[in-house]
Structure formats: structure tokens, C-alpha cells
């Protein structure tokens, strides 16, 4: 076999063909590739607003990549957090770019999430049989907003410190359990090093793991049910 046709792609390179054949003989990927990738047609009724789920997913991957890069230089201590962020921005080559993408990407992701959600809401796509997908979407929304809240504290600026003081003060308005929630979020009576450490842990480990799990569920359900038709 001298050429391999995968949908619109024609491969003539013998080495690439032999790699493909190796995998195909063992896993039988041709069926899945044809069905899910190469001959899967997007419905003609999809418009620009149908793209925002995918755009949000792209923004998330961008946040993961830039977040990992920031993690290389960021120091999560009250003494050094601000200095390390300043160091990233001013001294590390392209640090301004990586931090800028993470900062603005976070803002843009919130916008794309709400456009995506508005499309699903106003077109009634959340209705039967897609209720479960709406529920996973709401979990992802809560995770995204928690990302914003926890990430905001990490540079340890005046703005982020007081925003966290105010934000963690809000649950204490609840009767009986309010103060316990506040102390649980802060890890003590005040916003301190403990708060920074737990916000950091939630921001870089807990939320990414949760979001990846729910994105997988979200996409499996879309693939199972197909994209909803027009109104």
C-alpha cells in the first residue's frame, strides 16, 4: 500500500503509513476516525453561537498551558507571591506574555461561558433529553467562577487581598452555619498564609481535576445525543 486516504488527507509517506497500520492492526481506529472525525459532518444549521462551547474549551486548554508555565516561577507564600508575580512580569523573558494570556484568557473565558450558556438557555436546548448535560454545565460554571475567585487572590495584591476578605465574608451572613463556612474557606479567622495556600491548592489541583472530569462527561453526552436542532 503506497498511499493512505484518511478523509480529505492523502498520506504518501511510507513511515507514517506504517505507524498508522501498526495502530490500526491492533486497535481498529479506522472505524472511529471515519465516524467521529473524517466523515463527521457539522449540521448546516449551526451558526456562530454554536461555537462558544468549543471556544470555551479552547480557552480552558490555554489557561492550563499558561497556568503550568506561571507555576514554574510563582511562589505561593505571602512574603514572596507578589514579588514572584512582578518578577514573572518584568524579568522573565515573555513572562508578561504568559501572564497576560492567563489574565485576559480568564476574563475572556467568563464571557464565552456566558455566551455559550445564553445560547443553550434562550434556544431551550437544556430541555428533555438534555437536562443532565445542563447540570454538568452548571457544575462547570461554578468551577469556572471558583477558578476566578481563587486565582484572584494568588498575586497577593491589596486588591486581591481585600476582594478575598469581602468574598469570604459574604457566607458569614448566613445564620448558624455562616461563620463556619467563612472559617472553612479562610482556614482561620482571617485571610492569611493558610488562605493563600488553600486557594492555591484549589486553583491548581482541585478545580482542574473537577473541570476535566466534567468536560469529559459534558462532551460524551453531546456525542451520545447529537447537537440540538434549530428552534
Amino acid at each position: 500500500m503506497n498511499e493512505l486516504r484518511l478523509g480529505p488527507i492523502l498520506i504518501r509517506n511510507r513511515f507514517l503509513i506504517s505507524i498508522y497500520n501498526f495502530v490500526e492492526n491492533r486497535l481498529g481506529i479506522k472505524e472511529i476516525l471515519d465516524l467521529e472525525v473524517f466523515y463527521k459532518l457539522a449540521p448546516s444549521y449551526l451558526g456562530i453561537f454554536s461555537c462558544f462551547g468549543g471556544i470555551t474549551f479552547f480557552m480552558f486548554t490555554l489557561q492550563v498551558v499558561t497556568g503550568i508555565l506561571l507555576l514554574v516561577y510563582y511562589v505561593p507564600t505571602t512574603a514572596q507571591a507578589y514579588d514572584s508575580v512582578v518578577h514573572i512580569t518584568n524579568n522573565v523573558p515573555f513572562g508578561w506574555l504568559i501572564r497576560g494570556i492567563h489574565h485576559w484568557g480568564a476574563n475572556i473565558m467568563i464571557i464565552t461561558v456566558f455566551i455559550h450558556m445564553g445560547k443553550i438557555y434562550f434556544h431551550g436546548i437544556y430541555k428533555n433529553p438534555r437536562e443532565l448535560n445542563w447540570v454538568t454545565g452548571i457544575v462547570l460554571l461554578i468551577c469556572t467562577l471558583s477558578f476566578s475567585f481563587t486565582g484572584y487572590l494568588l498575586p497577593w495584591t491589596q486588591l486581591s487581598y481585600w476582594a478575598t476578605v469581602v468574598g469570604t465574608e459574604i457566607p458569614s451572613a448566613m445564620p448558624v452555619i455562616g461563620d463556619y463556612i467563612k472559617i472553612f474557606l479562610r482556614g482561620g479567622a482571617d485571610v492569611s498564609q493558610i488562605t493563600l495556600t488553600r486557594f492555591f491548592a484549589v486553583h491548581i489541583m482541585v478545580l482542574p481535576a473537577a473541570v476535566i472530569m466534567f468536560i469529559v462527561l459534558h462532551i460524551i453526552m453531546i456525542r451520545r445525543q447529537g447537537i440540538s436542532g434549530p428552534l
Binding site: 514554574v72 523573558p93 515573555f94 506574555l97 504568559i98
Partner: peptide
């Protein structure tokens, strides 16, 4: 390119 420069600071 920016990622590699970022991970290998000149100083």
C-alpha cells in the same frame, strides 16, 4: 519560541 525563552531565562 516564547515558551522556550520563558523556561530558559537569559540571566
Amino acid at each position: 519560541y516564547p515558551v522556550i525563552k520563558y523556561l530558559l531565562p537569559a540571566d
